[in-house]
Every structure is written in C-alpha cells, then in structure tokens.
Design a protein around this nucleic acid. Structure first.
Lengths: 115, 115
DNA sequence: TAGTTTTGCTATAAAAATAATAGCATTGTG
DNA sequence: CACAATGCTATTATTTTTATAGCAAAACTA
C-alpha cells in the first residue's frame, strides 16, 4: 500500500488533505500501537514484534517503513524510537488512554450484548 | 473481525486494556474518517459512502456496526450520527487536524523522496 | 395511485493486506 | 570459534477490503 503523505491522494481525500493522510496512516493495523509502545523508549524490531503479539514480520516491517517515511519514527542505536514529530503525535494520542479507561469503558456498563 | 471492546481480548492486549481496544477499533479502515465526517452532522449511508470515496458498502456496513456496538455512533431519523461518546472522542481527535496541517506537513519540506 | 428515486443494504467474486512460519545473513559476545 | 540476538526476506495460507450489481422498502412525484 502506498504510504499516505499530505498533499498526495490518500484514502478519503484525492487532494491529500493532511488530516486525511494522517488518518489513513494511523488507520492501518498496529500503526498507533507502535507509536504508543515506543513512547516507553526505544525498542528493537523483535521487541516490537513481541509487544504487538500477533503482528507478522512483514507487516511490522511495512508499518515501520511507512512511519519512518512519514517522519514519526527513526532508527537509533538502541532500536526504533519516536522522532520529535512522533512524540508530538503521541501527546495528542495520550488523552485517549484515560478517556478509554474512565469514560468509554463506562458506556459498556449495563450493556447485555457482551459477545 | 470481532468488534474490539474493553475487557475482552483485542489486537495488542489479551486482557483488553481499554486503550488497546480503542486503538484496535480506530485502527481499522475508515473508522476515524467516519467519526471525523459525522462531526459535521448526521449523514446517510450513501452520504458516508460518497464521503469515503472508495469504501465498499460491505466495509462501510461492518464499520458502522462496530462503531455502533462500541457506542460511538447511532442511527437517527436524519441518518447516522455521533453519540455523546462519539462527540467526546472527536474532541480528542480534532487537535490532530491542525497538527497535521501545520506541523506534520512541515516535516516533509526539503524531503526529496516525494514518491 | 402508479411511477420514479432514494436509501440501506446483501451477494458475489476479485484483489489486496495480513498472518504464520521458516530461515538466513550479520553483528556482538564468551 | 561457537552461540545467541537481531533485522529482516521468502513463501504460503487467511482474512479484509474492494468492485460491482442489484434488490426490497420507504419516500417523493406526477
């Protein structure tokens, strides 16, 4: 799949509106998970693989390439790590953590369709 | 694919950590795009289809089911619309719009690998 | 009230993405 | 030098997603 970048056609926007490029990028399997994990510090390829539990090396590799091409992660001597842009994006993602935990979860209470 | 809910096994977390369930849910094609679009007001099935440009009705339909099961969107007489939880989530997503536009896009300047 | 649209969606088949698994070349270590 | 860890590639099987057609029900319209 083509790496979505602002200004170029992406899913949801033929003109490549930046937000649409970003949503396209982050809307791919594991992309946000990788960013989330890397905030805890650099991680090796295999470290990421373990973290993601069921990701295949192919997918991890393409995801890494995309995120690198989009300036969100980079290689360091300690493994893959967030770039300054990646850190900024994480800051925007972070609030979703407590929202999910404290608010969203509540919405499932007295919800019988547990399956 | 099974709808990811907090407390149940999801991609990235066997115990169903809420944030992981959320990232799993939002990390599926078009999920965030649908939420983003619905913030402009209710939209019909076909309206969403047009907005997403290249989504197939099958995918749109499963995505809608998932988002409804997760209490983020609902059906109204004017079409599909965000729930109060959906609105809350949108508020968290919104800052990504300007970040993408004003900061992320900058990171691509003097980047010759335009392809 | 008999057409015509619009809407929400299903069916089917093809294409694309992802997973599962094995394994290899390189680097570092004892 | 043996040995383990790392960053992948290759291959095949599964799962998702697209693409396209089309239908039944509801909502106009003449």
């Amino acid at each position: 799949m083509k790496t979505p970048k602002p200004g170029q056609p992406v899913r949801g926007s033929k003109t490549g509106q930046p937000i649409m490029a970003l949503l396209d990028l982050l809307g791919r399997g594991w992309a946000m998970g990788i960013i989330w994990h890397l905030h805890n510090g650099p991680s090796t390829f295999r470290g990421l693989q373990d973290y993601c539990e069921s990701i295949s090396p192919n997918t991890l590799n393409t995801r890494i390439k995309e995120l690198r091409d989009c300036n969100l992660i980079k290689r360091t001597m300690e493994g893959y790590a967030l770039t300054e842009y990646g850190e900024e994006l994480f800051e925007l993602l972070q609030p979703m953590g407590s929202w999910a935990r404290y608010k969203w979860t509540e919405s499932f209470k007295n919800d019988n369709s547990e399956e």
